[in-house]
Design a protein around this nucleic acid. Structure first.
Lengths: 186, 186
DNA sequence: ACCTGAACACCGTTCAAGT
DNA sequence: ACCTGAACACCGTTCAAGT
């Protein structure tokens, strides 16, 4: 079977789910594919871009809420859809957060939200979308790492319900804030 | 001069400022101190805890706004004080963000804000403080990495004023949202 | 107690050489 | 064009041995 970029990405996602980001090395990806590490570099420029591709895959899996929904509801559903996508794979939040930080990755997670905000004639769509995105990412990273530490028994893992409530509270704060800003007329 | 935990932390901060997080290795810290890498492990359990100590140092440098200030103003000033601290050293935001993620580090960046919110009898102080913290961290990480990429000419580095405005907009959104939530009586 | 020297088990990346 | 084998220049961490 020919080595392809797609096969490399798939192997990367498998390692991510099974062993986590810490064990995701180019050599391990090559092992899974039964190939020498150097061979990967014929299909992928470097590790960072592979991680960006994995991030894109995660972000792409976010399905946008119905465009008929009112902005507030739409944003709330978008936020939880994004959260679900991040949580759907091991270390998913960290992969997306760090790929976003270095600015690689073709998928822009907040674009859908920006467009919905623009369509609703809200002021500063990019600022609102970015604020929501930063919160969702930060919260998901924290929740995901805390969960892993709880699994290892390093820290006692508070009720899972508490995390979900804190999440929806944060979203509510930001959505209400955006609302208020719009009413203030700036 | 005897090798101490303090000297190791100081050397770490120097390397961070001069060469960045990517070049901060235990071996390099040891080199700077004129010592073998293994010697560090007598004073510091591992690299992660050294990074947590650096994070603590950065967080500790945040000075709390005057307690006389009204909550809204206080939160706004706290957010920009935290941002300044994160931006004050190379990769500062990423160091704090990742140490916070893994849950090491004795300094809890959001504690001051939680206390101020409690003192003002605002509802859900932890949720509000966490939301603000996640935004400040996310924004600072993005701004800092984008700045470094601009230095390297990889990406054109939009106006620095735009970043500052987006920051204060995000803070405003969250502060207004917290206000609104409080008025709604929940 | 504190540090050296050397090792162990890894990394990401490059590149001549083969097919 | 695509992959192997082997190397380069690193890592974090451990640990016997020295002082």
């Amino acid at each position: 079977m020919a080595l392809t970029r797609e096969a490399i990405i798939e192997a990367g996602l498998n390692i991510l789910d099974t062993y986590g980001l810490g064990d995701l090395s180019m050599r391990r990806v090559a092992d899974v594919l039964g190939v020498q590490a150097g061979a990967l570099y014929y299909h992928v420029p470097n590790k960072q871009s592979l991680l960006a591709a994995l991030s894109d895959e995660i972000v792409r899996s976010v399905l946008p809420p119905s465009p008929d929904a009112e902005v507030d509801l739409w944003l709330t559903e978008w936020a939880s859809g994004l959260r679900d996508a991040l949580m759907s794979r091991r270390d998913g939040a960290e992969v997306v957060a760090s790929s976003l930080a270095v600015g690689l990755g073709t998928q822009q997670p907040a674009r859908q939200a920006e467009e919905r905000l623009s369509a609703a004639s809200m002021p500063h769509p990019e600022a609102i979308a970015a604020t929501l995105l930063h919160f969702v990412l930060g919260h998901a990273v924290e929740e995901q790492t805390r969960g892993q530490m709880a699994e290892l028994g390093i820290v006692e893992g508070g009720a899972p319900e508490e995390g979900a409530q804190r999440f929806s509270l944060g979203v509510k704060i930001i959505v209400r804030g955006a609302q208020t800003l719009a009413k203030e007329g700036c």
